Simulated scan of single mutants.
Amino acid sequence: MKDSALFKSAQLGPYTLKNRIVLPPLTRSRSSQPGNVPNDLMATYYRQRAGAGFMVTEGTQIEPRGQGYAWTPGIHSPEQVKGWRKVTSAVHAEGGTIFAQLWHVGRVSHTSLQPDGAAPVAPSAIPAESVKVFIETGPGQGALAPPSPPRALTTTEVKELVQLYAQAARNALDAGFDGVEIHCANGYLVNQFISAHTNRREDEYGGSLQNRLRFLREVTQAVADVVGNNRLGVRFAPLFATTEEDRVYLGLVEDDPHKTYLEAVKVLEEIGIAYVSLAEADWDNAPELPQSFRADVRQNFSGRILYAGKYTAERGIRVIEAGWGDLIAFGRPFIANPDLPKRIANNWPLNPVDPATMYGGTDKGYTDYLTYQQ
């Protein structure tokens, strides 16, 4: 497949990518404690996967309240910034391009993960259902738990959060990242503002769709002002439910996802960001994005379009050749195959991923997967 669309170079903002294969954000919970600090092991992990045309880090919380899972890294303390420099230096030494994903979980958290055991923050005081968070129960030990009931942010606090995103972007540049991606998907904070199911605010950030998109607009613009709009991406996870079972997805399936996310994409086009990442549902028999939605996104967004979600190389090639997207992300295959681009190019078989070592732990199931040549 080395002559396929996946291996044609692509321009992403100021960067010329060597291929169109992307390492997407993948939570692995390997940061050093205390302090959620990126470490040498994480630097090795990303360096091993620098054969990707483009890489996005695991979600990294922009402030202490942004954490929803044990042992995930942050990008708000000097120690964390120093730790991330190890990662970016390792990737750049291999000729890679890497963006930091800026993350705030909002209501999808637990009091044990919050400063002073406080309630998580959210647009409205509506608890998250049908989802679990991961909390530490002892040194190196953790367990799933339901999220704690959140409290609603004041209008002043919302505006302060916009500035916290901007500061996180400054920290990312200081850490040597090539750009940043804002996590606006999967039921986390920005997504909570967008959704009518979780945003019942009566101020300028609630009510109409345009008001619910205001936080997205302000955060994206504030970050673009720091890093440059050509070094900025945004990730969404639009879900087009076909059954009632599909609709139970963090309670955030929109009544009209096509309209909601198309309007969101138009906001990003106005700001002029480099790419939009669309994370499709990845469970068995999950609904695919309608072609009409893909076409409308392409028509209304002039930057690069990235797709992720149980993609095979063949399916990715079809999406690129059809003109729906430009870049294809491979999650679990990249976890188990650090040399994934070479394996795809040469039609080499793939290592299977070990689900038991996905989150937390040591190098096992993290940096000890062998390349094909090994």
Rank of each mutant, 00 (worst) to 15 (best):
S277R: 01
A286D: 07
I75N: 02
P115G: 06
D256W: 08
E160M: 03
A274R: 05
S31R: 01
T44P: 00
N186T: 14
T137F: 12
G360C: 05
F134Y: 12
G66L: 03
S89G: 00
W283T: 04
A52C: 13
D354M: 04
S112R: 12
A90L: 05
G361A: 09
H92A: 11
V234Q: 02
F7M: 08
T243V: 11
I135T: 15
I317F: 01
T44S: 12
L209S: 08
I182Q: 05
T260C: 09
A295N: 13
P120W: 00
A70P: 00
A237E: 12
A222V: 01
I328V: 12
Q373I: 07
D368C: 13
Q11S: 15
D174A: 14
F236H: 06
L17S: 10
K310S: 15
G331D: 14
Q210M: 13
N285F: 09
S29G: 01
P150D: 03
Q291Y: 03
A345S: 12
V297C: 02
L252W: 00
G59T: 08
Y311R: 14
E321A: 10
A356P: 00
P73S: 04
T27L: 11
T260G: 06
Q114N: 03
V91E: 03
A143Q: 11
S32E: 15
E160V: 06
H258I: 07
K132R: 14
L173D: 03
C184G: 15
S32A: 15
D40I: 10
E79H: 00
V162T: 07
L189H: 10
S195L: 09
I273E: 06
G74D: 03
P24Y: 06
E245A: 14
G361S: 12
K86Q: 06
F240D: 12
M55F: 02
